[in-house]
Amino acid sequence: MHNVAIALLAVIALAACEGKPPSSDAITGGNPQHGLDAILRHGCGACHRIDGVPGAYGTVGPALQNIGERAYVAGKLPNSPENLQMWIRFPQRIEPGSAMPDLGVDEIDARDIAAYLYHQSR
C-alpha cells in the first residue's frame, strides 16, 4: 500500500509539472480584471507605461511590462507576489523619498494589481 501511495504522489507531481504555469490569480490570490479596474482607479498610468491599460503612457516611473521576469521589485525587493503587493501598498515605507507615492491602495486592490501585472508578463 505504501508503494501505491508513493506512485500516486509521483503521478500527481508529474502531471502538475506538465501543465501550464500557474495563473496570475493563483500566484497572487488576485483577479487580473479587477486589477485593471484598480490600476485605472488609482491612476497608475499617470506615471507608468502599462500594457493593456488605456492611457497608461506615463514616463515618471518605469514601464511595467514583463514584471514577472524581473529579479527585483523597485530595484530593492526580490520579485515575489508578496513583495510586489507590499511595494504597491507601502512604497514610502520601503523606499522613503521614492517618486512612488503612497496611494492608499488596500490589500485587495494590491493583490488584483499584482495579478494584472503578472498576467501581462506571460
Rank of each mutant, 00 (worst) to 15 (best):
Arg70Thr: 02
Leu36Asn: 10
Val4Met: 07
Arg122Val: 14
Leu77His: 06
Pro91Ala: 02
Gly55Cys: 03
Leu8Trp: 00
Gly104Ser: 13
Thr28Pro: 03
His34Met: 10
Leu14Asn: 09
Arg49Trp: 10
Ala71Arg: 13
Gln85Thr: 05
Pro91Val: 01
Ala15Leu: 13
Ala46Leu: 12
Ile27Val: 06
Arg122His: 12
Ile12Cys: 09
Ala99Asp: 12
Glu107Arg: 08
Pro96Ser: 11
Glu95Asp: 11
Gly58Val: 10
Pro101Phe: 15
Ala13Tyr: 05
Tyr116Gly: 01
Leu9Pro: 00
Pro54Met: 12
Pro81Tyr: 09
Pro32Cys: 09
Ala5Met: 09
Ala56Met: 01
Pro96Ile: 13
Leu14His: 09
Ala115Arg: 00
Ala13Lys: 10
Tyr72Thr: 14
Arg49Asn: 08
His42Gly: 02
Gly35Trp: 03
Ile12Asp: 00
Pro21Val: 14
Pro91Tyr: 12
Ala63Gln: 06
His48Thr: 03
Ala115Lys: 08
Cys17Leu: 15
Gln120Ala: 14
Pro81Asp: 06
Asp112Val: 09
Thr59Asn: 11
Ala5Val: 15
Gly55His: 00
Asp25Leu: 04
Leu36Phe: 03
His119Lys: 04
Tyr57Glu: 14
Ile67Val: 11
Pro81His: 13
Ala16Asp: 09
Asp37Gly: 15
Asn83Arg: 00
Tyr116Trp: 08
Trp87His: 12
Arg111Glu: 00
Asn66Ser: 15
Asn79Lys: 11
Pro32Ala: 06
Gly35Phe: 04
Val4Arg: 13
Tyr72Ser: 14
Ala46Gly: 10
Glu95Met: 15
Ala15Lys: 15
Leu14Thr: 00
Ile113Leu: 01
Cys47Thr: 15
Tyr116Glu: 04
Ser24Asn: 03
Pro22Tyr: 00
Lys20Asp: 07
His48Ser: 01
Ile88Gly: 07
Glu18His: 07
Ile6Ser: 05
Gly30Ile: 12
Val53Phe: 01
Arg122Glu: 05
Met1Thr: 07
Ile12Leu: 13
Pro22Phe: 10
Pro22Gly: 15
Gly68Met: 03
Leu9Ala: 13
His42Val: 07
His119Met: 04
Asp102Leu: 12
Ile88Ala: 06
Ile12Glu: 06
Arg89Met: 10
Pro101Val: 02
Leu84His: 11
Pro62Glu: 08
Glu18Tyr: 11
Asn79Trp: 09
Thr59Ser: 10
Pro54Cys: 11
